[in-house]
Simulated assay, not measured.
Amino acid sequence: MRPTGRRPSLDRLRRRIGFDRNDLRRSVDRGQWMLGIALLMLFLSLAPPLCLRAGRAAYGSGVDAERSEAATRHRVEATVVKVDHRRSGRALTVTWRDPDGTARTGSFTAFRGGTVGEHRAVWAGPSGVTDEPPQRHARTIADALTAVLGAAAALGAPLLGVYLLVRYRCDRRRYRAWAAEWAQWDTRRIP
């Protein structure tokens, strides 16, 4: 009967990772284990500051974009006057009146809708007109989280690649050693 509970599973995990004094472990096993621990410690020491820096930069630029877009863009009701079909989306030309009564015309690419005479809500600003609203805070947070995860992946992928390469070479050495030991056992005489 196998022992159940938390303690045996933790012991099994500890032995699988290599934290035991097993005399059957070869030097290649210990070397692979030490390199794995070193790469893990390197990742754990470099990842937090790198991720923090990437997250702060993305969050700061997102907050700046939120503020500038909210200050410069305003929502207007526009009428579509021209539609050009393109390979990706449609180029819409729209007209609208500013709050001061000035008639304006602008173009943007839309991926849904777009017939002549249609009334659409668009956002106008000094850089032109678009159908995308100003950036929201939820997008800023999502961009910051994406930057954090991207930084962790960019750091972790090469370290994982190094470990997998070393593991492949250690496995080859291990298999050659096992084959040599089996060949030695195969030549023994049975009394």
Rank of each mutant, 00 (worst) to 15 (best):
residue 4 T to K: 12
residue 5 G to A: 08
residue 5 G to F: 05
residue 6 R to M: 08
residue 11 D to R: 12
residue 11 D to A: 11
residue 13 L to I: 13
residue 15 R to S: 10
residue 19 F to C: 04
residue 22 N to H: 09
residue 22 N to L: 03
residue 23 D to T: 11
residue 24 L to F: 09
residue 25 R to M: 03
residue 36 G to A: 14
residue 41 M to W: 08
residue 42 L to R: 03
residue 45 S to R: 02
residue 45 S to D: 03
residue 47 A to W: 05
residue 49 P to K: 04
residue 51 C to V: 11
residue 51 C to S: 11
residue 52 L to M: 07
residue 53 R to H: 11
residue 54 A to T: 02
residue 56 R to S: 09
residue 56 R to E: 09
residue 59 Y to A: 15
residue 60 G to A: 14
residue 60 G to E: 13
residue 61 S to N: 10
residue 61 S to D: 14
residue 63 V to Q: 07
residue 65 A to E: 11
residue 66 E to M: 12
residue 68 S to V: 13
residue 68 S to M: 08
residue 69 E to R: 08
residue 69 E to T: 14
residue 70 A to E: 09
residue 71 A to C: 02
residue 72 T to H: 07
residue 74 H to G: 04
residue 75 R to P: 06
residue 76 V to N: 01
residue 81 V to M: 04
residue 82 K to W: 07
residue 83 V to L: 03
residue 84 D to A: 06
residue 88 S to P: 00
residue 89 G to I: 06
residue 90 R to Y: 00
residue 93 T to Y: 01
residue 98 D to G: 01
residue 101 G to H: 02
residue 102 T to Q: 12
residue 102 T to L: 10
residue 103 A to M: 14
residue 104 R to N: 11
residue 104 R to S: 09
residue 106 G to N: 06
residue 107 S to V: 06
residue 108 F to Y: 14
residue 110 A to M: 09
residue 111 F to A: 05
residue 114 G to F: 03
residue 114 G to Y: 03
residue 115 T to A: 14
residue 116 V to T: 11
residue 118 E to N: 02
residue 125 G to L: 00
residue 125 G to E: 01
residue 127 S to D: 11
residue 128 G to L: 05
residue 136 R to V: 05
residue 139 R to Y: 10
residue 139 R to K: 12
residue 140 T to I: 08
residue 141 I to L: 11
residue 143 D to K: 00
residue 143 D to R: 07
residue 148 V to P: 02
residue 150 G to F: 01
residue 151 A to D: 04
residue 151 A to Q: 02
residue 155 L to W: 04
residue 156 G to A: 14
residue 157 A to Y: 04
residue 160 L to F: 15
residue 162 V to N: 07
residue 162 V to T: 10
residue 164 L to N: 03
residue 165 L to C: 08
residue 167 R to Y: 11
residue 167 R to D: 09
residue 169 R to S: 08
residue 170 C to L: 10
residue 171 D to L: 15
residue 173 R to M: 08
residue 174 R to Q: 13
residue 176 R to P: 07
residue 178 W to N: 14
residue 180 A to P: 02
residue 182 W to G: 04
residue 184 Q to S: 09
residue 184 Q to D: 12
residue 184 Q to N: 07
residue 186 D to P: 01
residue 186 D to L: 10
residue 187 T to Y: 03
residue 188 R to S: 06
residue 189 R to T: 11
residue 189 R to F: 06
